[in-house]
Design a protein around this nucleic acid. Structure first.
Length: 82
DNA sequence: GCTGAGCGC
């Protein structure tokens, strides 16, 4: 299941974000999108979890949760670009 | 060192 996470602290690393989701289930991949030119974090990313139940539970639990002084916004990711 | 809407190559 693809998960979209926004309002992420710009200093957050992918492994740190992965640890947050790993508490609620198995995490296969974490991607934090950064600016292509300045290489600066955009403050949002994607997390992929194979287990649908754990993914749904993680979204419910982590959404609105504080992460590095920021309230995380976790939703189900939209379908990728066609 | 810089900032803050929101969907990725």
């Amino acid at each position: 299941m693809n998960i979209y996470v926004a309002n992420v602290n710009f200093r957050a690393k992918e492994e740190e974000l992965r640890e947050v989701f790993a508490r609620y289930g198995e995490v296969t991949s974490v991607k934090i999108m950064k600016d292509r030119e300045t290489n600066r974090s955009r403050g949002f990313g994607f997390v992929e979890m194979p287990n649908q139940e754990q993914a749904a539970a993680a979204i419910q639990a982590i959404n609105g949760q504080e992460f590095q002084q920021r309230k995380l916004i976790v939703k189900e990711a939209l379908p990728p670009r066609p």
